[in-house]
Computed example of a mutant assay.
Amino acid sequence: MNNNKQIKSGWKGRFYEDFEVGDIYPHPLGRTVTQVDNIWFTLLTQNTNPIHFDEFYSAQTEFGRPLVDSTFTVALVTGQSVTDISQNVMANLGWDEIRLPNPVFEGDTIYSYSELLEKRESKSRPNVGIIKVKTYGYNQEGKIVIEFLRTMMVYKRDHAPDAANELLQKVLDKDSKN
Results as ranks from 00 to 15, higher is better:
10 G>Y: 12
154 V>S: 04
13 G>E: 00
104 V>Q: 03
1 M>Y: 14
23 D>W: 04
30 G>W: 08
81 S>H: 06
87 Q>W: 04
33 V>H: 04
115 E>D: 11
16 Y>R: 04
137 G>L: 03
64 G>R: 00
45 T>Y: 04
88 N>R: 08
75 A>Q: 00
154 V>C: 04
32 T>Q: 10
45 T>Q: 00
34 T>N: 07
13 G>W: 03
98 I>C: 10
143 K>E: 14
121 E>T: 12
124 S>T: 09
58 S>M: 06
82 V>Q: 10
108 D>P: 01
76 L>G: 03
140 Q>I: 12
71 T>K: 10
2 N>C: 13
22 G>E: 07
148 F>R: 02
172 L>H: 01
163 A>I: 15
108 D>E: 07
157 R>Q: 15
119 K>Y: 02
96 D>P: 03
29 L>M: 14
9 S>E: 12
155 Y>D: 06
98 I>Y: 08
14 R>E: 05
146 I>M: 01
101 P>A: 07
81 S>C: 07
114 S>D: 03
87 Q>P: 12
67 L>S: 01
159 H>G: 12
27 H>N: 05
42 T>D: 06
39 I>T: 00
155 Y>K: 02
156 K>Q: 06
177 K>W: 11
41 F>C: 05
99 R>P: 09
145 V>K: 07
117 L>S: 05
26 P>L: 12
17 E>S: 10
27 H>A: 05
124 S>M: 11
169 Q>K: 05
42 T>I: 03
99 R>W: 07
87 Q>R: 13
48 T>M: 13
55 E>C: 07
5 K>I: 14
165 N>M: 13
29 L>P: 08
167 L>A: 15
159 H>W: 14
164 A>S: 14
62 E>L: 15
84 D>M: 14
4 N>Y: 11
9 S>Q: 14
40 W>K: 13
150 R>Y: 02
89 V>C: 12
136 Y>R: 12
171 V>D: 03
20 E>P: 11
88 N>V: 00
15 F>C: 00
40 W>R: 12
36 V>S: 13
97 E>A: 11
78 T>D: 09
54 D>H: 07
127 N>V: 13
138 Y>I: 07
156 K>P: 04
77 V>P: 02
12 K>I: 11
152 M>C: 10
176 S>E: 15
105 F>I: 08
54 D>P: 11
112 S>E: 01
138 Y>W: 08
45 T>C: 02
78 T>L: 07
106 E>Y: 10
135 T>A: 07
166 E>A: 15
29 L>T: 13
7 I>N: 06
10 G>R: 08
43 L>P: 02
177 K>A: 15
31 R>F: 07
138 Y>Q: 07
67 L>N: 05
149 L>P: 00
160 A>P: 01
3 N>G: 13
138 Y>R: 00
16 Y>Q: 02
53 F>C: 12
87 Q>M: 13
98 I>F: 09
107 G>E: 04
177 K>L: 14
168 L>R: 08
135 T>P: 06
124 S>D: 10
172 L>T: 05
51 I>Y: 04
154 V>L: 06
158 D>G: 10
123 K>W: 13
79 G>W: 02
135 T>W: 01
81 S>M: 01
157 R>S: 11
52 H>W: 05
6 Q>M: 15
50 P>V: 00
